[in-house]
Amino acid sequence: MEELVELSRLAPRERGIVHTLVGGRGFVSRLAALGFTVGAPVTMVRNHGQGPVIVLVRDTRIALGRGEAAKVLVRRREDNDGAEGE
């Protein structure tokens, strides 16, 4: 099943594919330069409480504030077998 969710809702080790970025041009281009483009695979590394999340995208670990992570919409990947690294 492929659903569209906010990045901040992925559980640790869950993977997704970036679908849309919501926000002003400055914000979107900053994220895009770091690897968050349409079609990019992402893996959630740490997601706890209300603090910022850590995501793995294009071989890099990026910490994102919760509000920022909510602005990235991803499609959950079906093959979530818990494998680490991308």
Binding site: R30, T60, I62, A63, G65
Partner: peptide, 9 residues
């Protein structure tokens, strides 16, 4: 207002 938190580890 708070600035966006985006940081590489």
């Amino acid at each position: 207002e708070r600035a966006a938190f985006i940081m590489e580890l």
